[in-house]
């Protein structure tokens, strides 16, 4: 770790002020991604702004929405009976991230700001069509994700919360990378009265994406059979020591069918 200045503001305005005026200033949430990066000296921030005292954690559930503060930990989402009731797939997703230690430190805001192509939350946010609220605006999920490790956030812009519409049914199925246990292929299915949205994480070179062929088929017939014959093209999918693009393409189908069968 290189030396840096550490700040722990109590007002969002002061946090964004520090972050806004210095390109090398960085926000710190749960630190589960950022601290390993610092330890490996892959990042050399001037100032680290800890978001812990900004009052950004908490979960609010209404009949139509679930809003989760940016600093809410994965464990809090996984353990919330209200979330489990409203969007079972979301609570299940949070319960499958990393291990106990990671879930008790890592946050939804950190995960979304980072937008790791193998992260789980982006699949839920995109499939559910959530809205990301920042210190200055609201961003729709379809606009937010812009490729791996790239988002619509501006320098110094802070996520404050994420609002998910409550679907009719949802589920998340994850094929874990055998080593890291991040998603090698993760599929989130969200069924609304208006149609079905399907998002895939872990698989693509350009990060989380919507599977429009599955969406069209499932919107008319919400059964695993409806997508059994739809092949996912391997073009543009990741290939690494654990999974070729072909294998990932195949797993997308398997995970999606299982997710449909498990949706509730």
């Amino acid at each position: 770790m290189y030396d840096f200045t550490y700040e722990k503001p109590t007002e969002i305005a002061s946090a964004t002020a520090i972050l806004g005026k210095d390109d090398e200033a960085k926000a710190l949430a749960g630190g589960q991604t950022f601290i390993p990066v610092l330890k490996q000296r892959l990042n050399k921030p001037t100032v680290v702004v800890d978001l812990a005292k900004l009052g950004l954690s908490g979960i609010t559930v209404t009949p139509t929405t679930v809003t989760i503060g940016a600093m809410t930990t994965h464990a809090a989402v996984a353990d919330s009976a209200e979330v489990a009731h409203a969007i079972p797939g979301l609570a299940h997703l949070a319960s499958m991230i990393g291990d106990w230690q990671v879930r008790h430190r890592g946050t939804i805001g950190g995960s979304l700001a980072n937008n790791d192509p193998s992260a789980c939350y982006p699949a839920a946010v995109l499939a559910l069509g959530a809205t990301i609220t920042t210190d200055r605006r609201s961003i729709s999920a379809d606009d937010y994700f812009q490729g791996m490790f790239t988002t619509a956030l501006e320098q110094g812009e802070l996520i404050t919360s994420v609002t998910f519409p409550v679907p009719v049914a949802s589920s998340y199925l994850k094929f874990k990378n055998p080593a890291s246990r991040y998603a090698m292929v993760g599929v989130f299915i969200a069924k609304f009265d208006t149609g079905v949205r399907v998002a895939v994480t872990g698989a693509s070179q350009s990060g989380v994406f919507r599977h429009t062929a599955f969406e069209a088929a499932l919107s008319t017939n919400f059964t695993a059979d409806a997508i059994a014959k739809i092949a996912t093209p391997a073009d543009g999918l990741n290939s690494d020591i654990h999974a070729s693009a072909d294998y990932r393409a195949h797993l997308i189908g398997v995970m999606a069918r299982r997710a449909v069968a498990a949706a509730k």
Binding site: P178, A179, S180, D240, I241, H242
Partner: peptide, 23 residues
């Protein structure tokens, strides 16, 4: 079932951390 130290054809160690080496 799990473990493999994998070098690529340039002799770079590809599975050089627990992110890639399956303990």
């Amino acid at each position: 079932l799990l473990e493999a130290a994998i070098y690529d054809d340039q002799a770079q160690l590809v599975s050089g951390s627990f992110m890639d080496y399956t303990m």
